[in-house]
Structure formats: structure tokens, C-alpha cells
Design a protein around this nucleic acid. Structure first.
Lengths: 201, 201, 201, 201
DNA sequence: TGGTAATCGAGACGGTACGTCTGGTCTTAGG
DNA sequence: CCTAAGACCAGACGTACCGTCTCGATTACCA
């Protein structure tokens, strides 16, 4: 990684990639080190040696910056499709938890959720993002449904929502590290509810 | 309702119930009207015609005040035990959603979750509160387990956590009003995973 | 000195001498240790283990308390009348400076002057006190005038005022300890202006 | 006078002269109207429609602001050098008293002296200011000394200090308006002490 | 001798001001 | 036209005191 603390200056009438990178880097570092409590536009500008207006020009709100930070690191979570739903979901949740645990991923997402409770823009973004994630997970479940692994009357979207809810709950109450085997238990119990019903005698 | 805006003063070297009530009332109203964004100790003091130190004397942080507001109205949620788990959980979630929808309940709790993402005190309080709620719900499930309605290998606590996660997810993404029938579907699918396994032939 | 930190309480429907003494003592100590900056009714009450109302009952303002403290220690300054004016004034100023330097005397009087610039009550008290002191010093000068040491056209009151002004200036600019021989020089120059004029040739 | 209450804003990354002027004007007006008792950074900010941080950015303390206000209006006092010391000093004191009496000059300087009794920064500033004033007055006296109007053994600095002390005393005890002819008497008596001693027969 | 009244400590009350921090806007100078 | 820089107004933060009030207890005084 090239570490340039050298003085940046304007590159003329166009967005400066160096500034953008410095701002995103500073934002992520602050979140990693001090959490949402230390995260302010002021602090990001200070650390990135950027002017506050430069930040406000490109990210209209604290939430927008958070979302940008989150998206730039989000390509780690798996949506495997191995032919076994329970295993797929277990892998997915495990990789999600791992992503949240290591680095700033979890802190950033927690911050977005928090911000969404007061900032309408962030609320909209979170709403859309959550919907998108539900679709992805639901696809996994629908594949299993097609394979006959999941009952035909099951709502894949709601099943996806339940799984996400479990993960969010752990994240928001600082319990990502608590009893990792719970993930397996939870997945088992959730998947059990999705099995095709045995025809009643 | 008797509305007394009359000047309050000290009642001696002890906490003034009138001030306490005025502060809690003001806090709730501000949250209801302007949400977490408008909620500040300053604003609460102004509205309650209370001094800021009076608030800080009794509630060490914004989060503590939020939690107090929440607890004073929380006795509305039911934990019915009718002998049918699915019905019990449905009633519970329905009454919780109703409580969150009407009045300030939902806004207050969302605010607490948001605050907990930056304030360690709030985080601790939320952690404890969530744990307590899991115990309550788990008790319901354990009763069903005793009746043979739920398989003996099921973890009641994790089942309770899954249910809470679903509710939190709806709250945090502004979807309390979206498709109320989803609650029923979700409960059904969750409860299905808890049923005793038919002995395999 | 009997040091009783024992719990005081009311001695009935009359002023408690123990409380009064404790308050004055606390006030003086605070001024001595931290100066006017640390001096507050709150601090005095805390240190004297007295209730604030007890202080306000007997001393209506910060200035009143300061004046009381000052008066209880003021019997140290000399107004000698040895038959030599220059020597009398020198002794007087020297004893005044000594009183101001040692203990809390100077700090207390500086505080009174400061307070008098915003508190009308203190202003009145200071006005009267200064007038009284002028009379005392003027008497000394008038004695010298009677002896023929001072010209008959001289205003003793104004001479007294000039001398007091010199002392106040040193006190208010933290120069009590600076060049003690200046006192002698100053007195000499001031007294020289008071001598009987030689009849013009 | 052009009265512009129009909204000010930044003029870039440099001190805004409009804000500075508005703050000094507000400070002076508050002192004039309510004296030191009503003077607070909060009140100045309110009246000047300035942010408190803007004030703290440029004036580190209440005393610094007071001193600035004082210095901007202080160029009114004369140090005449007419060839007659008594007349020079009379003019100087008269113009000083006039300046203190009219407008906010006197109130401001009294406030500075008061502030200096609790704020070390103000004390330092007052110390330096008083020393500077002594030098100015002493120069006047030294000129007279060079002319032979004042005895060679006289300390001009101490003479200057005596004169300043008289003025301060009048200011601090609200007696600027009392018996204006006293100034003349005082000057006469002070100058008399400076005359060259007639060689004793 | 018993009731009343004024005292005491304690500390809560509504407030004001403190000095600091951040938010979001604006203007400059320079590339 | 965009940049870094930083000043601007605004207002919340949490703290220190202000001067007032009420409490429960402790006595001295007077009926």
C-alpha cells in the first residue's frame, strides 16, 4: 500500500481521486479505532487533511459517507449454493459474521443502522440495501425449494428476513463473538421450519 | 388531564416527582414529534422548564433517559400463555408491533438501539434488556416444550432470539406497517422449526 | 485552638456562633488558598459544612461576607503620631503593606474592590470605608499642620487620598513586594509637597 | 452611522472584520448599559449575532476582550508637553477623567481592574499596561526635570505612580464627578513635592 | 412543661454562563 | 471549476454556581 502523507492540492476542475481515497481511508480508520462515537465529518476532514466542504460536496451526509465506506469493502460475504441449504446458510452467516468481526465492517454497518434511525436518507438507503440482501438470500432458499428441500408453501423472502434479523440482533447487541456454535443451532432451527411437511396421516 | 404549567420548585432535599414527570413527558413528546434527531437534553430541559443539571442529576446520559421513557410505557406488551405456542407468539408479536406503532414506543426503542451503537452505557443497558426479553420469551417456549409442543432438543433461548431479531429488523427498517400478515407467516415458519421431529420410519 | 469538625446543628431559634465562625474561617481560608477566583458561596458552604441558606441568611451577598472577613482582621494597621509626619506615614504604609502581604488581608481587600465594581452594595461599603480611612489619615496630617510641619493651605483630605491611591495601586497590580524602598521614596516625595512654602523672596 | 444588522458570513479562511467590529461594538454597549455584572461572553455573542467560538477564537478570555475594547478608544487621552509640568499633568488628568466619565471608558477600565483580581491573564495585562502608562507619565516628568522644573533627586517613575494611584482611586470608588476642583488641588500638592529644594541657608 | 418558632445541615430546584465541540455554509487563494 | 483551508453562525454538550425553596431535626423561648 502506497502511503502518501504528502501535501495534496487541487488538480483543477475535477474531482480529486487522491482526496476521495484519503477521505474514505480516514473515515474507515476512525470507525475502526473509535467507533461511531468518534466519527464526525470534522474528524474525518482533520485526519484526511481535507476541507469539510470537500466532503460535503461529494457525500451529502454522514450516512452517505458511511454507506460508501461499507460498499467498498462488502465483496467478502459468500452466497454459496452447494446443494445443501443448511450448509449454504451456515457458510453465509459465518462469512458475514467474520466480515463484521474483522476490520471495520461490523462497526460501519452498525453505524449505518444507527444513523438510519434519525437520518431519512440513511433510512432509505438501509431499507433498499436490506431488501436487496433479502432477495439474494431468498434466491438461495428458492433454489432449495426447487430441489424439494424446502416446502412449496414457504415464503422464501420471509425466511430470508428471519435469518437477517438474527444476524442484525447479534451485531447490534455486541454479541458477534458470543457462543459461535449458536449460529449453527439457529440455522438448524430456522431451516427445520422450512422442511417440507410430512403428509399428515 | 390536568395540565399544570405552574412554576415548580424544590420540595426539599429530595427528588421532585413533578419535575421527574415533566421531564419524562417532555422527552416522550419530543421523540414523538421530531424523532431522535430533535432529541437533546437541552431541548428536553427547555420543554419541561427544567434546568439541565436537574436532568443530569437523575439521568447520567441521553440513553438513560431514553430507557426510562421506554420502561414506563412498556407494560403493554403481552406474554400470553394460552396452551398454543403459535397463538401465544402471534399475540405477543402483534401486541409488540402495536405498541411500537402507536405513540412513541417504537421511536423510543429505535433511538435506544441507535444510541447503543455509540454510547457504551446504552449498549450495556440494551444488552441486558435484550437478554431479559429473551428469557421471557424463552419461558413461553419452554412451557410449550413441557407440553410436548416443542421438540426436546430445541434451544428455547435461541428460538426467542430469532423471534426478537425478526421484530427488530422490521422496526429498524421502518416496516412495522408493511404487510401485517407477514407476522403470521413468519411465526408459522419459525414455529414449524420447533415442532418435535416425527420419528423416522 | 480547639478544632471541632464535629457535626453542628441548630442551637435553637438563634444564630449559631459555631456556624458563623466556621463560615468566616472557611471564607478566609479559601481566599488565602485560591484567591477570589475560587471564592464562591458554594465553596464556602462546602468547606464550612454549612447550608447555603445559612450563609445567605446572615450575609446577603458575596461582598457582605468579604467585608465581614476583612473587618474581623483589620486591627493591625497603625496610625502612629510620633511628631514627625514622614515617619508616621512611613510606619502606617509599612504596617498596611505588611498586613496586606501576610495572611489573607490583601487578597480579601482586593476582592472587595473587585466586587465593588459590579455590586452596588459593595461599592457603597467600599466608598464609606475609604472615606473613613481618609479621615483617619487626614487627622494625622492635620496634627502635623498644627505643629507647623505642613503648610496651612494644604488639603489634608486630598493628601490622605493621594497616599491611599499609591497603596491601592500597588495592591491591585500585585506589586506589594516590589522594591520596598519605593515606599520610602514615595512618602518622601508626597510629604515634600506638603511642606510649608518658603516665603518667596 | 450605518447600522447593518444583515447576516454576516465568512469571508474565507481569514478573520472577518465585520464580525470583529460587531463583537467589539456589542461588548462596549453591554458594558455601557449594564456594567460588568451584565457582561458575559454569552451576552456579547448574542448581541453581536456571533458564535461563541468566534469570540473565543480571537479573544482567549473575558479580560482580553475587555482590554481590546479599552485600547480601541484610548487614544483620546493627552500627554501634553507645554513646558509647564503642573499644567501638563492637569491637562492629562482632566482628559483622562473626561474619557472615563463619558462613554464606556471608565466602566471598561474598572472592569479590567476587577477582572485582574481573579484572572491571572488579566492581571498580567493590567500590570504591563500600568507599567507602560507610568513610563509615559514619567517621560513628561523627566522633561520637566531636564528643564530644571523638577529636582534632580526625584524619581520620575514613582511620581508617575502616585499620580496614577490618585486617578485609579477616584475611578474605583465612583468619585470621578466629585469635586472636580480636587484634581487641581491634588496636582498642585503632588507637584509641590517635586520642586527643586531651595538650598538651605 | 409543652408548643411554637427560628435555627441548622442538606440538597433539589429553575436558571445562566461557562468553554468546547460539531454541524453545515461560505469565501478565499491557488492550481 | 475544484481543491485545501479555515472562518462563519448556530446550538448542544456537560459542569459550576447562583439564589431560592423545602425538608426533618434540633433546640431556646414563652405561654
Amino acid at each position: 500500500m502506497i502511503e502518501t502523507t504528502e501535501r495534496r492540492s487541487s488538480v483543477g476542475a475535477q474531482r480529486s481521486p487522491a482526496s476521495e481515497a484519503a477521505i474514505l481511508k480516514a473515515a474507515e480508520e476512525i470507525l475502526l479505532e473509535g467507533g461511531l462515537a468518534k466519527f464526525s465529518i470534522e474528524a474525518v476532514a482533520r485526519r484526511a487533511t481535507a476541507g469539510k466542504p470537500t466532503i460535503y460536496r461529494w457525500w451529502p451526509s454522514k450516512a452517505a459517507l458511511l454507506l460508501d465506506v461499507y460498499h467498498r469493502q462488502k465483496n467478502v460475504v459468500l452466497y454459496p449454493d452447494t446443494g445443501n441449504l443448511e450448509q449454504d446458510l451456515l457458510l453465509m452467516l459465518a462469512s458475514l459474521f467474520a466480515f463484521w468481526r474483522e476490520g471495520s465492517g461490523g462497526t460501519v454497518f452498525r453505524s449505518i443502522i444507527a444513523e438510519a434511525q434519525s437520518d431519512p436518507g440513511a433510512a432509505k438507503a438501509l431499507y433498499d440495501y436490506a431488501a436487496d440482501r433479502r432477495v439474494q438470500t431468498a434466491d438461495l432458499i428458492r433454489h432449495a425449494q426447487a430441489r424439494g428441500e424446502v416446502g412449496p408453501e414457504i415464503s422464501a423472502t420471509i425466511a430470508a428476513e428471519i435469518i437477517a434479523g438474527f444476524a442484525w440482533g447479534r451485531l447490534l447487541t455486541n454479541r458477534l463473538d458470543q457462543a459461535p456454535e449458536d449460529i449453527e443451532t439457529a440455522i438448524k432451527q430456522m431451516v427445520a421450519g422450512l422442511l417440507p411437511r410430512p403428509s399428515k396421516p
